[in-house]
């Protein structure tokens, strides 16, 4: 009799457990939804009263006078991010090849540790370093120093570990039999790597680049500290620019009504861009899994 009661007790416990876990997981899942909903809600007034077209058609970005031309800021965001990705991608890929195919084991693992440390440096510290070391150097080259170039260089340094570590992992997933086959055919290293290894790992490498792009688009502090934050379309890499994220950080403190709402639209744009990139990465990831299952 008592064993039956304890069994019943255990069942009740299990029921309580799984349902409380479900509640906790629902709250977790809700966070993403809440973020989207509230940023959207705050952005709506400006979307309705100002309309999309004026973000491209207004004279300039004078938020206090009701002029909301976002083009230079959008351009600043895209240019810094793409510049950073353009530099970080080849370097990250070469780093990954170094770890997997060139370095002796002990050097490869310590280099990987170093990349992890690089990834752990806070963005505000990168920004500080950029401000006191990099910007004066660029200023010697071509004033004012706080510039698109500084932003690109700092961003490439910040996203390089992402590209390198994820690429290393996906290069490591290339089946060993492929490499043995290439060796048996006595293909050169160049041919093996460019014709066999990189094409096989392609979707993993693209995922790495996509995730790094997302990180570069949303980066705030470092870009805010080294780019000079002038709202303008840059004529050269030495001109200062302002990014969407930096714009939010700079103006949120004093923004009211429409201006504040426009800042939330900038946040929404960032969110949409990043959401799109994450979706692309997850589609690629599931394709990859299908493929490996096929083998």
């Amino acid at each position: 009799m008592s064993s039956l009661a304890s069994l019943r007790q255990a069942k009740r416990n299990d029921w309580c457990l799984i349902n409380s876990l479900r509640i906790l997981a629902s709250v977790t899942a809700l966070v993403g939804v809440l973020i989207t909903v509230f940023v959207l809600k705050e952005a709506l007034p400006a979307l309705q009263s100002i309309g999309m077209l004026r973000f491209f058609g207004d004279d300039a970005w004078y938020p206090l006078e009701g002029q909301f031309n976002l083009v230079p800021i959008l351009l600043g965001t895209v240019l810094t991010a793409l510049g950073g990705v353009a530099i970080a991608t080849p370097l990250g890929l070469l780093s990954a090849l170094f770890c997997q195919f060139y370095a002796p084991n002990i050097l490869a693992s310590s280099y990987q540790r170093l990349l992890e440390l690089l990834a752990g440096i806070p963005s505000v510290v990168y920004g500080f370093w950029g401000l006191v070391v990099l910007v004066p150097k660029i200023n010697q080259l071509h004033p004012p120093g706080q510039s698109l170039l500084a932003g690109i260089l700092i961003l490439s340094l910040m996203i390089l570990p992402t590209v390198a570590l994820l690429s290393t992992a996906s290069l490591g997933d290339v089946p060993k039999a492929y490499l043995q086959g290439a060796d048996a055919l006595s293909l050169s290293r160049w041919t093996t790597l460019t014709r066999l290894v990189i094409p096989t790992a392609r979707s993993g490498l693209i995922t790495a680049i996509i995730l790094a792009t997302g990180r570069a688009l949303g980066e705030t502090m470092a870009v805010l500290m080294v780019c000079g934050n002038v709202v303008q379309i840059p004529n050269s890499v030495f001109d200062p620019v302002r990014s969407l994220a930096a714009n939010i950080a700079l103006e949120m403190a004093y923004a009211t009504t429409d201006h504040r709402s426009v800042l939330f639209i900038s946040g929404l744009v960032l969110l949409a861009l990043v959401g799109l990139l994450v979706m692309m990465a997850s589609v690629l990831g599931s394709e990859e899994r299908e493929k490996t299952r096929g083998i």
Partner: peptide, 28 residues
């Protein structure tokens, strides 16, 4: 099914830029 949705939401959350977390926090 539920797990897949939670995971999707977490993937999204992992990509959200920190400044957007700041916007959300200041509102919510």
């Amino acid at each position: 099914r539920f797990g897949q949705w939670v995971r999707r939401s977490l993937d999204f959350l992992a990509g959200v830029p920190s400044i957007v977390f700041g916007l959300f926090g200041s509102v919510f």
